[in-house]
Simulated scan of single mutants.
Amino acid sequence: MGKTIPSSGAGAVRIILKNKEAFKFDLRNKETEGARTSYLFDVFYENAAGTLNIAVEDSEVRLAALNLSLGKVINLNNDANLKKLCRYVLEKVE
């Protein structure tokens, strides 16, 4: 069992990365428009559930947002670790 995420969402991505085996995700939608591919996942981790949106362009994660319904949306601007989590998820799906 992994460590639970605090209700504030603080350090959520770091906690998930350290406990990847407890992080579950299901691809809900994948769309490609030009060079950009967008993914929408339903995600689940211990005490939190939500969505992960990823936009990939030229094999690089350009946009990402993780919403675990904890009061804040985690994106690339407020958590640099999110890119690592996105790469992990995309490796598992492709």
Rank of each mutant, 00 (worst) to 15 (best):
M1C: 08
G2A: 12
P6Q: 02
P6A: 02
S8A: 13
S8I: 11
G9N: 08
G11L: 00
A12D: 08
A12Q: 11
V13M: 05
R14S: 15
R14K: 15
K20T: 05
K20L: 14
E21M: 10
A22R: 07
F23A: 03
D26T: 02
L27T: 09
L27C: 07
K30F: 00
A35Q: 03
R36P: 07
L40P: 05
F41M: 12
D42L: 04
D42G: 03
F44I: 00
Y45F: 15
Y45Q: 03
E46A: 10
A48P: 01
A48M: 12
A49M: 13
I54W: 01
E57Q: 08
D58S: 13
V61W: 03
R62V: 15
L63W: 04
L66W: 04
L66G: 03
N67G: 12
S69M: 11
L70M: 14
L70V: 13
K72Y: 02
K72C: 02
K72F: 02
K72A: 03
V73F: 03
N75T: 11
L76V: 10
N77R: 14
N77L: 12
D79K: 09
D79A: 10
A80P: 15
A80G: 13
N81M: 11
L82F: 07
K84R: 12
C86A: 10
C86Y: 04
R87D: 07
Y88V: 06
Y88P: 09
L90T: 02
L90I: 04
E91W: 01
E91Q: 05
K92G: 00
V93F: 06
E94Q: 07
E94P: 00
